[in-house]
Amino acid sequence: MKPTLQLDAQGRLRHLLTLEGLSRELLLKILDEAEAHDKALRGADKKQSTLAGRSIINLFFEPSTRTRTTFELAAMRLSADVLNLQVSASSTSKGETLFDTLKTLEAMQADMFVVRHEASGAAHFFAEHAAPGVAILNAGDGRHAHPTQGLLDLFTIRRYKGPADDCFEKLTVAIVGDVLHSRVARSDIHGLRTLGTKEIRVVAPPTLIPAGIADMGVKVFHDLDAGLAGADVVILLRLQKERMLGAFLPSLAEFHRDFGLSKARLARLKPETIVMHPGPINRGVEIGGDVAYGPQSLILQQVSHGIAVRMAVMSMILGAPATERARARRSRR
């Protein structure tokens, strides 16, 4: 396999910047690795020594609760040393460039940067300029990509619709809401397509559908009931009002009326349909409060799975994967 920015000459992960272009084999390998970590997290000893002596810096230029906390917890579970950099109080607020920030932190001998930034392509910039042996993990860049969220969504779907790897080939997945501003939607679409999902739909008003998205192999719906008909998985997206310049919607109440998942709408779907959301949720906007934590919702499970998935990616880049360690233990018996 030819090396790329994300992969080394042997086809192993060097950075994780996007799910676009990653092979089905590699995606399934990451999901299998996450299964091993998830199993370990449910045991008595949740801590592993995989990344002992390694240093990981969470470099978040945008606010985050779930993503930053699960990255931090994942690194700590692997015994890495973790530093959370408060960017608003760092030298970037004084005019320091991204390049200078990277080089300054590299001088502190960090092994991995987990980067969240409001600009699309920021993680790629870091990866292109990172020193050999320094890994970049994209925790969300602009509207572009959120690969670990995409992976944990795939993990959750396979957990509840699998366990066979070909379970995606039987599924209809509807992604509903602010697709235009969503990096999660893009990562989900890339991952779902690579795993052979039978049908991927995006459902939103015309103002929240990005131009050319049909070229990604999805079906576009502007009517929620039509878009949800027969769906096995519903992934709801938050309205990202902080990224909206101008009038995209008449009102939040009208959006909920036309595109919100209420209990009444959910009742029209198959009882085995699962509901997901990357968070944070807006009750009464994209989802009803009685749906958010109802019996078909997997929102809290997604958060839990995020720890195992991020442990999997970190260990595959910086240390021996849990699946390889298990094989080594068996060979010594």
Rank of each mutant, 00 (worst) to 15 (best):
M1H: 13
R12D: 09
L13R: 06
L16S: 06
L19T: 01
L26W: 09
L27R: 05
L27T: 12
E33R: 04
A34P: 08
A34M: 04
A34V: 04
H37W: 05
G43L: 08
K46E: 13
K47H: 05
K47S: 12
S49Q: 14
G53Y: 02
T65F: 11
T69P: 04
E72T: 08
E72F: 10
A74R: 02
M76A: 15
A80M: 07
N84Q: 09
S88C: 04
S88I: 03
S90P: 15
K94P: 03
K94R: 13
E96R: 12
T97S: 07
T101A: 11
L105Y: 14
E106I: 08
E106M: 10
M108W: 12
Q109L: 15
M112D: 03
V115K: 10
R116H: 06
H117K: 04
A119G: 05
H124S: 11
F126D: 13
H129G: 02
V134Y: 08
N138Q: 14
R143P: 09
H146R: 01
T148Q: 07
T148I: 06
Q149P: 11
G150C: 07
L154G: 03
R158S: 08
G162L: 14
P163S: 13
I175Q: 04
L180H: 14
S182A: 11
R183P: 09
A185C: 06
S187L: 05
I189Y: 02
I189H: 08
L195Q: 02
I200H: 01
A204M: 09
L208Y: 12
A211G: 11
G212I: 09
I213P: 14
M216R: 05
K219N: 00
V220Y: 00
F221Q: 03
H222F: 03
H222A: 07
L228E: 00
L228A: 02
G230Q: 07
D232H: 01
I235P: 00
R238E: 12
A247S: 15
F248W: 15
L249T: 13
H256E: 10
G260Y: 08
L261C: 04
A264R: 08
E272A: 01
E272N: 02
I281E: 08
N282S: 12
A292N: 06
P295F: 03
Q296K: 07
Q301R: 10
Q302T: 04
V309F: 05
M314G: 02
T323V: 12
R327H: 09
R330P: 06
S331D: 15
R333S: 15
